[in-house]
Computed example of a mutant assay.
Amino acid sequence: MDTAAPLPLRIAVVIPSYKVKAHVLDVIRRIGPEVERIYAVDDACPQQSGRFIQENCSDPRVKVVFNEVNLGVGGAVVAGYRAALADGMDVMVKIDGDGQMAPELLPDFVEPIRNFLADYTKGNRFYSFYNVRSMPRMRLFGNAVLSFMTKISSGYWSIFDPTNGYTAIHRTVLSRIDLDNLARRYFFETDMLVKLGAERAVVLDIPMEAVYADEESGLKISRIVPEFMRKHAFESIKRVIYSYLIRDFSFASVSLVFGLLLMGGGLSFGAVEWIHSVRSGHVASSGTVILAALPIILGFQLLLSFLAYDISNQPRIPLLQLLRHPYSAR
């Protein structure tokens, strides 16, 4: 495919502004001139952050969006996305208003999209070993668990730090996602990856440094991991069924089906024979053991083959290239 010329982009920043009065004005001040519009979203904030921004910020690029009720970070970002789409913006960059994300990094997130290298970019705080050393141990462990679950449910095996909220997306890709069907609270960033995976969009990690200021994170790992595990299990099953049994049927599909049947059959047969052996007091014969073990081994090998295919089956060509037409940039 021919190399495309970089897109002339109208860039917008979406800032969820919930309990961030101490930092949000400094975040806005540091946003560079390449940004055309800034949407600060007051998600029914008890600090009235939207009014605070209107009264204390003179930047003409700023537009405050008010949610009548609190919808969570996802609901706030979606409100900002809708406003940016309505105003004809091309790339929407989401930056938190708490000062943990450096606005100076914004060009790093936009350039891969401008040059047709990615449809969606997101931050990754785990590129640098020295940066990882400064992270709280519980946060590090929680992100590792959530990252592994997200790899399975989204199909993006090469990405990490799925809850990182520093992101950028092109309107052509965003318009393919049902915004009404996105998770509204802490599962929002992960749900975006799941939805993008279903669209076969190319996602790229952008190295960034973790900054921990004086605010307390509302993301409690011990509270969200059980909820996330349930949602990830559902999304994983849905993705595998849709990708390998409905949208496509390949050797990987055969490996998956027969791998599950063989492992399930071998485990069931082995369990029944083991119970019978315990109750009767007779040791199972070597033939019985082989009849149970062989399907399990073969099934496990087939599932490994499926997993290897799934890991290699990540999207490689951005949708911005595949769907390029006169309306791609608007």
Rank of each mutant, 00 (worst) to 15 (best):
T3P: 00
A5Y: 01
A5C: 02
L7A: 15
I11T: 06
P16W: 02
K19E: 12
K21C: 11
K21V: 06
R30H: 13
I31W: 05
P33V: 12
V35L: 11
R37M: 11
D42L: 13
D42N: 15
D43N: 15
A44Q: 10
A44F: 09
Q47I: 00
I53H: 04
E55Q: 08
N56P: 00
R61V: 06
V62G: 07
K63E: 14
N67L: 03
N70R: 05
A76L: 01
Y81L: 13
L85N: 09
G88V: 00
K94C: 07
K94I: 06
D96P: 00
G99W: 11
G99I: 09
Q100F: 05
Q100M: 08
M101V: 07
P107N: 08
D108N: 06
F109E: 04
E111V: 14
F126N: 12
F129S: 10
Y130V: 05
P136M: 07
M138N: 08
M138G: 06
A144C: 10
L146M: 10
L146H: 02
S147R: 03
G155M: 04
G165K: 01
Y166T: 01
I169K: 00
L179W: 03
D180I: 00
L182S: 12
A183F: 05
R185E: 14
L193C: 10
K195T: 03
L196I: 11
E199K: 10
A201R: 02
V202G: 02
L204A: 06
V211G: 00
L219E: 13
L219D: 14
K220W: 08
E227N: 14
F228D: 04
F228N: 04
F228R: 06
M229D: 04
A233G: 11
S236T: 12
I241L: 10
S243N: 09
S250E: 15
F258Q: 02
A271C: 11
H276S: 10
V278G: 07
A284S: 07
L291A: 14
A292G: 10
A292W: 06
G299H: 01
L303C: 12
L304H: 09
S305E: 08
D310V: 09
S312P: 00
S312E: 13
P315E: 03
P315N: 01
R316K: 11
I317L: 05
P318A: 06
L320D: 06
R324S: 14
R330V: 07
